[in-house]
Design a protein around this nucleic acid. Structure first.
Lengths: 349, 349
DNA sequence: CTGAAAGCGCTTACAG
DNA sequence: CTGAAAGCGCTTACAG
């Protein structure tokens, strides 16, 4: 009925529990091959599986890591973060105890102490999107921050390289020949917003394109918000209207599609657009499929777990690692429309 | 340096460890209020938090439940399942150890034995979408199946009420006045596909509408698949073309929007559409927002955890619980176009 | 090459 | 009202 213990195996094999433990754990020792086999057979025969809890009590490590997040589970795009952490944990024989606090401070405090009581070997503090966070008081030293950065440092952390991502997005448009490139930004700006803007500004500046404040608009971070902001952009006089729009995220880019279609503008023939996030089920499924910059959630999750487990060298205890956001080229970017190129030429002469 | 033990608290309070344990666990006992206070103060003073692993070894329960899934984490719509399970676990003072196997059998086997070794108090086996599954050999009795059903019963399980959902979807269209209602189905049909079809057929039949096989089409389960299938529907002769389309899921419904727009058909004026899933970031963000049937992922996750923990009465050990899929009314359904109503009348006379 | 024994940090009958 | 002691199931010095 109840699970067999190591002493049951010992009895069945006619040896001591010491011996059983030694062979089952493959401890460097000169136990004879005969005995080893006998022990293994006995273990199989009684269906023995060692108790992790007893072992943990003795060895003081649980092969378990706590992953606490603000709302990873309820957010559509961060599951891959969990998946990356999960895979790295498995490869290193660890289990992950996952707690989603829903952003509630009290829940968070309780979760941290429950995780400490469980004696997790390591802890990861994850956010749904790139943020700077206050460090919860009881968070153990050495915890790693995932998709967020501790306010005053002191912990390793990994975040997306948003500035470089913004730069890359703008480059895609510049290389396609665009000069009037808008940044359709979010209204209540998270960190990523400013960072991406910096990259955008840098790319344009390097390309000798003057920054036009009229081309920086903001909207709610939804398709409808994106549409509304895009309307303002597309209502600009012909010679000021952007030919390419870099959107803060894919949801807002969808709004740009809506606004474009509403006035008979085709993408990418009349208007080029690039998004951000590479959101599953949205970016690839637009018509035409959206060129975008991917958030490397899976890789970030894996990185965090690997430094938490100490199997990765570049996890400085006080550095934030910025992970590259690759450009995903699809079909929403083309050259600017011919008549615009003409106009531009006319203007500059 | 190292964490304080119960004996440290006992020493600090000048009592036995028995007493400390008794007061900290609020065990029914006649320990004097004075002593209790002294113990609590001592515990605070030394920063004591009991070790879950030591307690687990002794009490033989870990207050931990294993949640193993095929790919919940990497799928966008099932995070809420995790959230529901999570919330129920927290309310009952349990932690969830989450393992995503990615559908790999070997990983699954290893995960189950790791979870058993951890002595989880209960186990939940979750799927990304409604399926009938072979029961993994080593799965403990009493495990509960989430969004799937064990092939030969023997375990409690919870799945969406897809038949009723299909019925409800069709009713929405019927009540809006439609008679030519198509079912835009998926190509490689999961269980839900047939179930939803049954509901659809039942609703039409009850309403005295003959089932037209030409109105049951299939496509890949993507926006493009939905578009392609919708094209076939919309290419039908005027008097056969559906005025309302019930789609297997929201992604395919997006394809219907695409097909409709491509031929200048407005939704819902010229064509009504209802989806399924209430997919985050897609259903609500269409133009017009999509009327759909929601998959009750959060509630299913909660139900599964509650029966796993034994805090819910209706979790029969061998019954599958079908959870209602509520209709989410938005703006993609209207009455059929006037000229169609006229035509229909003409035909029936 | 193998075993007896201590100890990880708790809880809980049992005794007083 | 409180305490001494056994025991949960392992691992690991230590001894032989």
């Amino acid at each position: 009925m109840s699970r067999p213990r190591i002493s049951d195996v010992a009895a069945a094999a006619g040896v001591s529990v010491t011996t059983v433990s030694l062979v089952l754990n493959d401890v460097e020792s000169r136990i004879s091959e005969t005995t080893r086999r006998r022990v293994r057979e006995a273990a199989d025969a009684v269906g023995y599986a060692p108790s992790s809890v007893a072992r943990s009590l003795r060895t003081r490590q649980t092969r378990t890591v706590g992953l606490i997040s603000d709302q990873i589970a309820t957010t559509p795009f961060a599951g891959r973060m969990l998946a990356g952490a999960q895979d790295a944990a498995r490869e290193n024989d660890h289990l992950v105890i996952f707690v989603d606090t829903g952003g509630d401070q009290d829940v968070e405090r309780d979760a941290i102490s429950a995780l400490r009581a469980q004696q997790v070997d390591a802890m990861i503090y994850a956010c749904m999107w790139h943020r700077v966070v206050e460090v919860p008081e009881s968070l153990p030293a050495g915890s790693v921050f995932l998709d967020c950065r501790p306010e005053h440092g002191g912990f390793p952390s990994v975040v997306p390289a948003d500035r470089e991502g913004g730069y890359a997005a703008a480059r895609v448009l510049i290389e396609a020949g665009h000069r009037r490139i808008a940044y359709l930004d979010t209204v209540d700006p998270p960190i990523a917003s400013g960072l991406r803007e910096e990259g955008y500004v840098q790319a344009l500046t390097e390309a000798g394109i003057a920054i036009d404040p009229a081309l920086h608009v903001r909207g709610e971070t939804t398709a409808f918000g994106g549409r509304e902001a895009a309307d303002r952009l597309l209502d600009l006089p012909d010679d000021q209207r952007p030919t390419g729009i870099f959107c803060f995220n894919d949801r807002m880019a969808v709004g740009v599609y809506l606004a474009a279609h509403a006035r008979g503008l085709r993408i990418p023939d009349d208007l080029s657009v690039v998004g951000y996030d590479d959101q599953l089920l949205v970016a690839a499924e637009q018509d035409p499929p959206l060129t975008t910059v991917a958030l490397p959630h899976y890789e970030m999750g894996r990185w965090a777990m690997e430094v938490a487990l100490g199997v990765r060298a570049d996890g400085d205890s006080d550095a934030t690692h910025r992970m590259e956001c690759p450009v995903i080229r699809r079909d929403s970017v083309g050259p600017p429309p011919a008549h615009v190129a003409k106009q531009s030429r006319r203007r500059t002469t």
